[in-house]
Design a protein around this nucleic acid. Structure first.
Lengths: 408, 408
DNA sequence: GCACTTCTGTAAAAAAATCTTCAGAAGGAT
DNA sequence: ATCCTTCTGAAGATTTTTTTACAGAAGTGC
């Protein structure tokens, strides 16, 4: 049966072919031709374009099925890099990641971030350049930048909401400042949202309904629903730290309310109770370490915190029906006691249906969740079929396809 | 400057042109050409295809800007219909809607639905045919079917989850049964989800983060985040009826738990308390009507119910940061007292940031929310650019573009 | 009333993309 | 070792799509 000419009913672009290769749906030219019903030359042309962009490489030969073995095509994770950062008051991280989202080089430290973008941004840009050199990459190889920072961030606007958690960052248009040095897409989001994205992409890719909970000094959540982040109107979605919990005992929270989850189960509250019982711990991390080591007092405290977090999460489970809840943050490193507490209340308070498929799992990315998430965020954007097609068109067409003259 | 030939960097399909016309971004051929940077003949050809499909009509002449006035293009809402249904235990509705989602003809009643699809489906199909005849439309003009039904529905699977709220409907593949009579896309979802979609599309189209709350016999919510429905793994998202409320007094709920929102603020609970105070009402609707008329006892009761609902919604606000909360359902018709109670607690318990832009508003669609939502659900699907392109390709190409022979 | 401007439609030409055909490469099977 | 099968690349032919060019239609303004 001769195929008809011209584009098929469902046009298959180079970006679409990249998706087939990335997801493993088709690994050789012949396979792509079969799956897409495109002719071999068409496939070859698209693959060549992707190779030009450095997004695809020809790997080892595949298994022969009786004839010449196919050239196995693979997504070229090394064909570029993305820059990633996780900013925080007590800790900041920066990394260079490959196109698969793997961390190639990273740094940690430098708390100058709390002094505002004027001092933090130069540090960040310089750090990225140093990290690029460290792993032998040129700055022009960067294809995108993903940044997570505390507080509510207007993803669409690319800046932090007022009032900011990080002093001085509110209302500042950060993306253009970064783009001066790295003229590529710059994406920003809330730190926990980014961690959720990282956990989803790196550790639980099949869980399209995922809630990432960060339990550290503060308590926050990043919500992924149907594979996409839930951000809310102002970017304030996932702020579970200030949901009131029953039997809070009237504990005052820094937000002005009482019985907030954070005031009851956050790091400072636990540390205060720990020292009230005559024990001492080196911060939240120390407490988590002691709980992991089996210290009875610490375990009890963390488990109780888990119960409190679980009370709020039960509501979230009923509301969102997630598939997995990931426990992250410093207290999340003491996974067993924390999860025990969470499970206790979640499975008691949530409806049978909403919790039927629910799994409560650890953050497998450890301290890299934020960095991986930043990379994943911008990779989603940069590797999307439309973006890839646009990149191909730009490479062989006019350099600047200026916007239409009509109404914006 | 001469334009270059061939497809532009961003291919603009007929489906995309339809979107421009539907959203009002471009209303004339010349305008489309300017916006898309397509040549006039290309635009004309795409417009002609859309006219062939009955999706676009040439309306009255637009205002002249010094020369021949442009032919004003408009989305042809009358170029087809969609069938919509909102099934429930005590009430079922069916409607024929135009392509703008407006209800052309509707019926209400017939509680045979509780006997399972075997008896309800024939009624539904027959009712649709009757309604089609009523508004002078042929069955083949139907382009899609959207159905909302109580309980958790697996949207992707097109059937209700076990155990079903509607007896006999669990696990039944409903879409194929409907498609036998109407060979068009058949979409199913939870009734409240569908109402949320209807409220979003018809009444609050700018609110991309919306929570629709139905307060009737049961209490449930439909969540729209970023313009898309939040469904959850099993389709159980939005089941707020069984979130435990503080100070519930140990009220037993039919689900087995205690202090569920539904057990405290649902219709039966309110009616019981009303009659306990020596008053009588004709069901939930009657109670709502009395509250709307200013009956002091009824108002107090509804307002108290609003407070209870608000306690749960405060958590949802912190979690999802919606822009609007729509109060629907029978009790929602007593909007003022209900909203007063909801506002009271929501704005006390929710964080300042999450509730800063929050509006609590009435369901403006009244009893049509479900019907409009069913139409909106399937229209989203049928009028999507890809679907439109596929329809055009099918019309002038091979009738059955059989699937690729490769792996599924 | 007439020139001008703007918008729309048709036809021919150019460009792009696609497919088919042919030739070569590389391993497995007999 | 030779044939066969499968996969890949290159050139030519064909189709589709798009653009340019031209002609007509329908208002406005002088």
């Amino acid at each position: 049966m001769p195929r008809r000419h011209g584009p098929s009913a469902t046009a298959v672009s180079a970006g679409h072919v990249l998706r087939l290769i990335r997801t493993g749906e088709a690994a050789t030219r012949a396979e792509i031709a079969r799956v897409t019903r495109l002719s071999r030359p068409s496939v070859a042309s698209r693959v060549a374009e992707l190779m030009d962009l450095g997004l695809v490489t020809e790997g080892d030969h595949g298994p022969s099925s009786g004839g010449r073995p196919p050239g196995r095509l693979a997504f070229d994770a090394g064909g570029g890099v993305v820059l990633s950062a996780a900013l925080g008051i007590s800790r900041s991280q920066a990394a260079v990641c490959d196109l698969a989202g793997r961390v190639l080089a990273r740094t940690e430290g430098s708390p100058e971030v709390a002094q505002g973008p004027d001092t933090a941004l130069p540090w960040l840009l310089g750090t990225w350049e140093r990290l690029l050199a460290e792993c032998g990459r040129a700055p022009h190889e960067a294809r995108g930048v993903g940044i997570g920072l505390p507080g509510t961030v207007r993803f669409a606007l690319g800046r932090a909401e007022e009032p900011p958690v990080l002093p001085g960052w509110g209302g500042v248009d950060i993306a253009p400042l970064v783009a001066e040095r790295f003229p590529v897409p710059v994406l920003l989001d809330n730190d926990v949202n980014v961690m959720a994205l990282g956990s989803h992409t790196a550790d639980y890719p099949d869980a399209d309904d995922l809630v990432f909970v960060k339990v550290s000094t503060g308590v926050g959540a990043g919500i992924i629903s149907g594979g996409a982040l839930v951000r809310g109107t102002l970017g304030a979605a996932g702020e579970i730290g200030h949901i009131p919990v029953p039997d809070g005992g009237g504990t005052a929270c820094r937000c002005g309310n009482t019985d907030c989850l954070e005031a009851v189960a956050g790091g400072p509250a636990l540390l205060a109770r720990f020292s009230g019982a005559g024990r001492e711990a080196a911060g939240v991390q120390g407490l988590a370490a002691m709980a992991s080591d089996g210290d009875a007092d610490a375990v009890a405290l963390v488990r109780e915190a888990g119960r409190r977090v679980g009370e709020v999460l039960a509501g979230a489970v009923n509301l969102l029906n997630p598939e997995v809840i990931v426990l992250g943050g410093h207290l999340g490193t003491a996974f067993d006691p924390l999860a025990a507490g969470v499970r206790e209340t979640v499975f008691r308070r949530a409806t049978a249906l909403a919790s039927r498929q629910l799994r409560i799992v650890p953050n497998r990315s450890g301290g890299e969740a934020g960095l991986r998430g930043g990379a994943a965020m911008v990779l989603d954007h940069v590797l999307a079929p439309e973006a890839v097609n646009a990149a191909i068109a730009e490479r062989s067409g006019e350099p600047e396809p200026e916007k239409a003259a009509g109404r914006s």
